[in-house]
Amino acid sequence: MKHERMLNVIGQIDEDLVFEAEHIVPEVPHRRPAWIRFAAAAMAFAFVAFIGLRFVNLWSPWQNQKKNADSAAAVAEYEEAVTGEAAEEEAAPEAAEEEAPAEFGKLEEAVEEEAAEEEAVEEKSAAGFDEENMEEEDLAMFDELTLYTDADTYVYSLDPDWVEDEEDKLLLDGTGQIRYDFVYQNSVIEDARLDDVQLTWDQGIIELPEGTKEGMLTVTVRWGAQPEQTQILAIPLGEE
């Protein structure tokens, strides 16, 4: 059928339909107002973005709130946890022994996981001070620097209120090296000098000048981003 004919046929449709089209204004099925569509789209985008960021662990507002909590509370919580664990161990040593075989597998897994985590943290520490990933709990704690040789081990607290015994020397072992370690692994050595001589340090080892037998080791340690989270330790060195 030719479309010209169809046009003619449509010209013969019932008169009331033609009349209706001329005289009646239909209710047009309008879409929702633009601002509603825009708001809905924005909300959908925000939701998807939020889910996406949560998925990749980039943004978590409630964790930020947690981080902003009073550091004293965090310390108290930590101490309570430590004392609680100690009390549990004391209260039920036998029960723990009985459960030990059953729990052995889990413990072994936990130890392995812990070791893996420590390894990861060591890598980070070796790479440098990782301020962004540092937890508030760690920042709240005063770190401890452990210096050790084959002849001696000494733990220096980074608490500025801690009074060191200046007479207590760290004994050298003749290798020309002092090994060092931090408890929380988020601290780094920023500077190390023997008297006025600049030293090198890397991977947990401070290199001493050849033939060093004594002197005053000065180590600048940083364990946080704040200015007060830096401390200079003066450590007398000696030989047995």
Partner: peptide, 22 residues
């Protein structure tokens, strides 16, 4: 065609007539 148009909604029907009749 008239029967068909009566079955459609008012807006579509009027649109069709205004387009192809008028």
């Amino acid at each position: 065609i008239s029967d068909f148009l009566r079955q459609t909604d008012t807006f579509s029907r009027i649109l069709f007539v205004r387009r192809y009749w008028y």
